[in-house]
Every structure is written in C-alpha cells, then in structure tokens.
Amino acid sequence: MTELIQIIVNGMANGALYALIALGLTLIYGVMNLSNFAQGEFAMIGAFGTYYFMQMHMNYLMAMILSLIVAGLIGFVIHILAFHPLRKSEPLNMMLSSLGVSVLLVNLSQYLFSPNPKVVSNSFSEDSIQAFGVFLSQQRILIVIVSLILCGFTYWLLERSKFGRSVRAASLDPDTATLYGIPTNRIAFITFVFGVALTGIAGGLTAPIYNVYPTMGISLTLKAFVVVVLGGMGNIPGAIMGGFIVGLIESFSAGYVSTAFQDVIVFSALFLVLIIKPEGILSKVQGEKV
C-alpha cells in the first residue's frame, strides 16, 4: 500500500514538472507553429542562471526570478535572430533552426561553464517530508506547487484574459486574427518569451535535485515533446494533463513492470496515441491545427 501511494506521489511530482515544460513548448507551437527543439536548453539556461546568481550570494528565490528574466531575454534575442525571419516560411525551416539553436546553446554553455555538473543547494533541497512511510522531498513539493500555480495562471491568462484571447485567436488563425486587430508578430514574440521563461523556471526548480550541466535540457525536450504530442500539439489543458499522465505511466511501469522498460512503455503509449488518436488524447474538435 505504502509503495502504491509512493508510486502515485512520484508520478505526480514528476508529472508536474513535465507539465510545466510541455506548457511552454505547446504554447509556442500553438502560436508560432514552431516545434522548438531548443526548449530544454532554456531550462538549462534557467538552471545555470540560478546556480550563478546563488554563487553571488543571492537567495534561491531571487536567483530563480532573475534567471527566468535572463532566460526570457535570451529567448527574445533568439527569437529575433533565429525564428522571426523564418516566420513566413515552411514550419520545417523553423524546426531546423531550433535544432541549430539547441546545438549552439549546448556547445556555448559547455565552452563557457565547462561540461561538469554543478550543484545547487538551497534550504529545502535536502530534506523530505514523510507521512505514513511515504516520502517526498521539500524541493519536489515546491516544484509541484510552483508548477500547479504556473499552469493555473497560464490557463487563466489564456482562457479568461483579453491577452489570452488574442493569443488563442492568433494561434487558431493568424491571418483572420490580424484582420481583427491582433498584432500577430508581437503576440508570437511575447508568447515565445513567455514560453521559454516558463521553461527557465522549470530549470531553476530542478537545479537542486538534478544538478546543472550543459546537456541537461536534451532529455527534457524529449520528454516535453512526448507530453505535448500525447496531449495534442498546441493544446494547453492537454499539455498539463499529458504531463501528469506521462509521469504516472513512468512510475507505474517502473513499479509494476520493470525499470528497464519504463521509457519503452512511455514511447509505446506515445505511438499508440499517434496511431489511434493522432490529434492528442484531449482533443475534442477533429481536424488539424496547421
């Protein structure tokens, strides 16, 4: 019983993180039609930022806020250089461009910061909270809380605010959105910066439990794509749900099948979804978004 609860807790805790990264990715896909392979690198930037700001004797929270701003600024520059000029060409070109950005950011940070992992420790990161034999580290609790808040905030922003309405309209039909007064280029900019900043926070949040190193973003990108495809490309609630589903599939397949096969099972689930319901499990309206 304890094991079952621990498995659920593990799955939810990881799922919250996956949801947060997938949220940024799906938002950017929805508005810009960009499959951003450099998404995970912004988590890396957020994590390195957190590490270096803490080296300057800032507290963890302050360091994380500053590094999310840094991630946003770098995102802004990258958008200008790598994506904005390609906005009218094939989506494939932007995808390739993002691949280049990913390689560039990884190599640049290897050059600047060395490939060796760095340790971030804050006051919560070491201790755990225990109830009925189930353990969850305080840092993971923080991740779950922050991630849920950000998912909720993003959902509210998109569904309830005037800005969110513009973003959704721009994502559904950019030309018509332009006709009705929405500056779609500017919306794409803001969305990109917002999306990578969300991922930057995820990087800062995971730094204390996963350490910080240049290639840390690659597996996050991969995970986020699985989540986004599962939840439906560009589908916000889908990304949030998808994050938790992937987290739970992983923990259950590790717990009840085999740890060696947990990735195999996650990817099998992905292929199954692609075959049966390629528009994503949470999609209601049929048809493609592109």
Partner: peptide, 9 residues
C-alpha cells in the same frame, strides 16, 4: 472567404 471564424472559441 470561407468565414474563418475562430473555431475553437
């Protein structure tokens, strides 16, 4: 042409 209403809104 083709109305282009925002279908998921």
């Amino acid at each position: 042409q083709g109305r282009h209403i925002f279908s998921k809104m």
